[in-house]
Design a binder for these strands. Sequence first.
DNA 1: CATGAATGAGCTTTCATTCAT
DNA 2: GATGAATGAAAGCTCATTCAT
Lengths: 228, 228, 228, 228
Amino acid sequence: MLSAKSPSKRCPTEPLKRERRKDARPGELLAAALDLFVEKGFALTRVEEVAKRAGVSKGTLFLYFSSKEELFKAVVRANISGKYPEWTAEFEAFEGNTAVILRRAMSMWWSSVGDTQASGITKLMMSEAGNFPELAAFYQQEVVEPGHALIRSILKRGMDRGEFRVIDLKYGVYTVLAPLIFLAMWKHSLGICCPASHQIVPEEFLATQIDTILNGLVEPAGKSGGGT
Amino acid sequence: MLSAKSPSKRCPTEPLKRERRKDARPGELLAAALDLFVEKGFALTRVEEVAKRAGVSKGTLFLYFSSKEELFKAVVRANISGKYPEWTAEFEAFEGNTAVILRRAMSMWWSSVGDTQASGITKLMMSEAGNFPELAAFYQQEVVEPGHALIRSILKRGMDRGEFRVIDLKYGVYTVLAPLIFLAMWKHSLGICCPASHQIVPEEFLATQIDTILNGLVEPAGKSGGGT
Amino acid sequence: MLSAKSPSKRCPTEPLKRERRKDARPGELLAAALDLFVEKGFALTRVEEVAKRAGVSKGTLFLYFSSKEELFKAVVRANISGKYPEWTAEFEAFEGNTAVILRRAMSMWWSSVGDTQASGITKLMMSEAGNFPELAAFYQQEVVEPGHALIRSILKRGMDRGEFRVIDLKYGVYTVLAPLIFLAMWKHSLGICCPASHQIVPEEFLATQIDTILNGLVEPAGKSGGGT
Amino acid sequence: MLSAKSPSKRCPTEPLKRERRKDARPGELLAAALDLFVEKGFALTRVEEVAKRAGVSKGTLFLYFSSKEELFKAVVRANISGKYPEWTAEFEAFEGNTAVILRRAMSMWWSSVGDTQASGITKLMMSEAGNFPELAAFYQQEVVEPGHALIRSILKRGMDRGEFRVIDLKYGVYTVLAPLIFLAMWKHSLGICCPASHQIVPEEFLATQIDTILNGLVEPAGKSGGGT
DNA sequence: CATGAATGAGCTTTCATTCAT
DNA sequence: GATGAATGAAAGCTCATTCAT
């Protein structure tokens, strides 16, 4: 009874208002910010609303993030760039056919970014980069560069192993990227207000894209004349 | 009554400034607004700047468009013009390899849309559709649908003639579309604030994309294992 | 009745709401700003209050002055630095004893600065310069420098004509300046809350200062031993 | 009962941190606050910074001072210490030329007030007196009055002994005071952000002032016309 | 019709003060 | 006592919109 009051040993059901919240705050704010940035874009998101959604006051947000821009950067780091190490590790460890890696990469992107709110960040940057140069530079460095590097390394592996045709790497990267970015943008623009009949089913979309990317449109028999 | 409109007799070569300008006003405003909306997005475009660029005062703008939103809608509506009939005619008349048609279609899109202000409308719609559902529906109907139909008809032709592999048409359309849309978006976002070393050269970009789309990444020899 | 509506010819009693006010605005804002800056200092003066006192809204103030700093600079220009050309001209034209010029300079300073709200600016700068380096630099350039130059030229004239002893000019300037600055500060600090018995009567204060500055404390007879 | 206060036996050389600090707290806070108020003025000093400099938390500061205003008042009161008795004694004991006393008084003021933190209090009072009338009254009584009395007694001695001309004592005091106050203010305002070329060297400044105060600007030969 | 002066709600950010721990 | 997380009232500045002229 005497010294049982150690702050770390408490009845687990107790709310522990101050302390426990403090650890949870940044995450709650990040989650709220992600939602709102995705919903309204960077410029139209008001920090006060982010705070309210996270259940705190305006001032509290600035206790954890020194400005709206820093908040945004933290959102990007938490939802996108933070995942590269894991992805890179996974693909470096992978053995087997490079086409399989590519399929896997695209479906992993879907499950961990495309299918989450994080895809909204992609759309947002494509929409607003021109007006927030500092953010654009940050995104280029933290997200675009590493993303390109990852895709480039996969393509190079395929070419080195004789599995892929030799193509221009700089632009080849976009063959993989374009469908993903398109999907992210579509989902957060036309996709949210488009009639059911025109909805894109992401899994089917991606399956078709990866299949065509790998095998091409042209019938192998007639490939010699492949539209050159 | 016929010519009673002219308040005074003027030399016919005289520009008739006031009157002609009055008729031209909405068009001048729309042109100025297109430029700025494309450059800065909806939220960051200031109506005062639109007015200034059109050579009128802020108040005058509101004489023609009751609000910034209405101005935006008018801009989009005014710039979605169907080039489709012309294109459709061209492709229906075409004889020869379908892969060639596809190459031609993509390079025509670049020269008549991508490389002009019109690509700004594409960017605008992808960026702002979520905030303007009625516009999105309009765009879907006037642009997306006919565009899909055109691409679909090309792909179908290739498949019917045994030149293309049989693929899912609904999603196959995006194989052609995604790189174009991506390029349009990129040009108006990261492209305007990205270091020279990362710039995309549209022609090279498109050449690589069409090549891969047609022939695939996988080396024909090893295609049997094509990542299935 | 037909064309009598020329905007410049109106009944002089008519309020002429918009136009006439537009000309008067900057002056009204400057007057309000002077009052408040003097009363509360730069940092504690709220632009909204300046606007309110001038009878306009916050936004209107920014129509005329692009920032609070620019407003302050305009106040300084209108109330102090704008007066140098006139003073300089006056003293350059002056003929006669330099001591007379000095007396006149000090009493002119009193009537056109010290005895007006403008003296508050002097106090304000001495109080806040350290925290607003940009303002301080501006003040140094627009007010301090020309002020020193003016005093220096008077002292130099006296020395050149053999009327004044030869003294260090750089620090000699402060002999004239210090009493004036002291008076301005005192008036806006202790002076506003000090018992009647200790009040300074500016004219008497200045008379004593100028007399001592010119003739010194030491009795001429004993000057040889002047406290060395 | 005597030593029951110590919660445990400690080595006598141990600093007894908690307790000693507790007693020292107010003093440490006042010292930190003095530094910052002098440097930044009342409005721009943040209590959090005061607390940090004193090594405590923001909350603790409010345990000792109920508001920022109370802290400010305490700072001023704590730093208005009478050096007057000592000075008075010194000057009463002094024998010899009064001009020498005056020189000595001014250089002593510089070394024991002007050149120390104490000059900050002078600056603070001149800057903030208007906003703290009770403080101003206190300062008037504790500092201004005795200071005037001291200077007055020196001047009177000079006049009584026929060394000084007969001048108005009330305002004559300011002849001595104004340069000192000016110097203190300058040091803490323009002096900290003014280009090297305009810096004031206090010793040279004071030498010039005392010299002019004693001997006047006017050339003795021409003094008869002394600007009357 | 056209103007542009005027408005005021709204934005990000700061900071004295409070209070649960 | 001491802490520092939390608050929320300002503050400077912007800009879509109105309306007297």
